[in-house]
């Protein structure tokens, strides 16, 4: 004889998942975007330093791609709901 566990009134598990992933996604995007803004700012300031400019452009490109990826994920979530 096995007793079926009663369905919990509040779905704590899903709520916790929402919290963890929202924290990870939200803070990651803000981190990436802020780092991109920081790189852009350095790119603009260091007009005569090709190394810094190159690094800044690379950083900005990688961050832009990452942000576009996250935006695409958001779009897919909306469409597949």
């Amino acid at each position: 004889m096995t007793a079926t566990a009663p369905t919990p009134l509040i779905d704590w598990h899903t709520l916790a998942q929402v919290l963890y992933i929202s924290v990870a996604v939200g803070i990651s995007i803000v981190f990436l975007f802020s780092a991109g803004v920081y790189s852009l700012s350095h790119f603009r300031r260091s007009e005569n330093s090709p190394v810094v400019r190159g690094l800044s452009v690379t950083a900005m490109s990688v961050l832009a791609l990452a942000i576009l990826g996250v935006a695409a994920w958001g779009f897919i979530v909306i469409v597949n709901k």
């Binding site: 929402v18 996604v25 994920w73 979530v77």
Partner: peptide, 11 residues
Amino acid sequence: AVILTSSHFGM
């Protein structure tokens, strides 16, 4: 982030 994540998990 919160709205899309919660949508993803059906809450």
